[in-house]
Design a protein around this nucleic acid. Structure first.
Lengths: 272, 272
DNA sequence: TATTCCGATAGTGAC
DNA sequence: GTCACTATCGGAATGAG
């Protein structure tokens, strides 16, 4: 049984007068102007979508996607992006707190848009920099989040267009679909960290798992050195906490387990 | 573990001074000039390969495939084909006897060549006109045996080239590979009996099973009418024979069971 | 046009 | 560039005296 896709589901969220009516399994947080939902198919360990609420002076059609927003009056568009940025920064802080609770270290977080989307309402991706997830299945998935391929448009870059000369602004907001599409299909599968080309998705996923494993090893060594310097031992009680005993709150920001279970484990035990 | 392909295995059979050294699971019969083996991957209920033995004046390279044979001196080539034809007619009789034992009726038998082959020795396909087999898996398989698509070259047609005007003979024996290749890939999946196009191999296979079921139904009705006319009842003893009790000889010409078992059953019970 | 295995690719259906 | 399912297509390996 597959759940029915609803390409306008974000629009229905964005039009809710009271976002809190959304279940906590969908809604993470909201502000006057935005709401943040869990990505139903997270492509990283942490993956959220920040969505602009439908409010005057903008209607749903202005917020269909990034291109439609960027065709609005410039200061209006910028205001929407700034609101998304503010909410995304709050989400970033929540993720970083959770990273510390779950993994004992933080790593980078990306914020950005897809220039083309099947979902019919603008959404800003906020995701941890790992691309390590059971839901990462296709080349299209991967390349759409690769941080330097060109398809993933970092929010700070989009905002920088507004401060550039008008001709540059005009050129960038075109967002020609065909050029972006070719990025997803024609590009190789290159590790976003070491730039090595992988021959297939299974090999890429194994490599990403390996890279994340190395990250945890590095960070563990780093905190070990710090512990020795400061002579403050890690609490042995906290270190012994198991999955079963861990408070519910701890895993609240990470994907629920259970499906795609044959994929590589996303396990905190990589730390130990 | 996959069995090792040996693209020259037929050549090794063809060079044996005494074919009877081949195990009965491989060799069906032989003559002075030919031998007949079971097709290891039968694409019909009955499927054999008649192979010319390597004998003077021809060497292995003359018998690599149909094209190399047809580049030999014309009367020599014709002689090889006539020898294959004679052996194939004997095989046809054996199949028809087995059809009567197993199915209580006979159906058409095709004899023909593939203009392109991976196996490195000429082989004449002799197979029952059903294309109903668990080993029939791909479009390429199917179209290579479709009796009117053009890839399957009926022996009688090839022999007819020899009696045509020389210009026609010269044109036909070219056997241009690229043209024949496109037949397999570009053609639709059309039922060879009713010419209906099927959308996929699974649907084609279901249709072929249905067609064979209808054939058995027709033939059963026909023999029933005949029984009434002649008033000679079918032996109830023979009608009650089960798979377990059936003498070994009965199933000797049909594929062994056991692999590809999830495919549609090839069962005599279609008759009952 | 040997098979089989693996993986990428293409089309569809979902309400 | 929604997912998930089915099927097709495409390359590479296969063996080993």
């Amino acid at each position: 049984m597959t759940s029915a896709p609803n390409l306008a589901i974000f629009r229905s969220y964005a039009s809710k007068p009271n976002p809190i009516t959304l279940p906590p399994s969908i809604l993470l947080s909201h502000s006057e102007t935005c709401l943040t939902v869990f990505d139903a198919f997270p492509k990283s360990i942490f993956h959220f979508l920040v969505i602009p609420r439908i409010q005057p002076p903008l209607s749903a059609r202005h917020l269909t996607d990034l291109r439609s927003l960027l065709r609005c009056e410039k200061s209006t568009a910028r205001k929407v992006l700034m609101n998304l940025n503010e909410e995304a920064n709050n989400v970033k802080k929540m993720i970083e707190e959770e990273m510390m609770k779950m993994y004992k270290f933080k790593w980078e977080i990306w914020m950005g848009f897809h220039p083309i989307s099947s979902m019919e309402h603008l959404h800003l991706h906020v995701l941890s920099a790992d691309l390590y997830s059971p839901k990462m299945k296709s080349k299209k998935h991967y390349n759409s989040f690769h941080p330097s391929l060109g398809f993933f448009l970092h929010l700070k870059d989009v905002l920088s267009w507004f401060d550039a000369v008008p001709s540059y602004y005009q050129r960038m907001i075109k967002l020609d679909a065909s050029q972006y599409q070719s990025l997803l299909k024609d590009g190789d599968l290159c590790c976003w960290q070491c730039d090595r080309a992988l021959e297939s998705m299974p090999k890429l996923k194994a490599h990403l798992q390996d890279e994340f494993g190395k990250l945890t090893t590095r960070e563990k060594a780093k905190s070990e050195r710090k512990r020795k310097r400061t002579d403050v031992p890690v609490s042995s009680v906290q270190a012994m906490v198991t999955d079963d005993e861990r408070p519910e709150k701890v895993a609240r920001l990470t994907p629920s387990r259970g499906d795609d279970s044959s994929d590589p484990t996303l396990d905190v035990d990589l730390l130990s």
